[in-house]
């Protein structure tokens, strides 16, 4: 009779694995802000500074057919800004490109 409790189990197995192949740590906040009229602005905060945000924004602008920019913030670091409601788009794009895991994404707003 084998006792399940005595089976060897490494509690740090996944911790080691995730720290190896992952640049992104911490949550990525995707927010939306209302501007005048029915215009909106999407901000992406918390992307790892290892990534080249300028390249990301260049790709996103082309992909979503919108304008965008990278803003430097003293507290939150580099923040992506995209015109329009790009929350769905940016979430899909970030996960598909493998930059961010789905569980690290946090979408705010309505």
């Amino acid at each position: 009779m084998s006792i399940q409790n005595l089976n060897t189990f490494d509690p740090f197995a996944d911790a080691i694995k995730s720290s190896e192949d992952d640049v992104q740590d911490g949550l990525v906040h995707v927010r939306i802000q209302q501007r005048n009229g029915r215009k909106t602005l999407t901000t992406v905060q918390g992307l790892s500074s290892e990534y080249d945000l300028k390249k990301i924004v260049r790709a996103c602008k082309k992909e979503f057919a919108c304008n965008g920019t990278v803003v430097e913030h003293p507290e939150y670091g580099e923040v992506l800004q995209l015109q329009g409601d790009q929350r769905e788009n940016i979430c899909q794009w970030l996960t598909k490109s493998g930059l961010v895991k789905p569980e690290q994404l946090k979408v705010h707003g309505f």
Binding site: R31, Q33, Q34, R35, T43, Q45, H73, V79
Partner: peptide, 12 residues
């Protein structure tokens, strides 16, 4: 529970 943070606010 997580504290409430408004995070980055762009200039609109």
């Amino acid at each position: 529970v997580a504290s409430i943070k408004s995070g980055f606010q762009a200039v609109t």
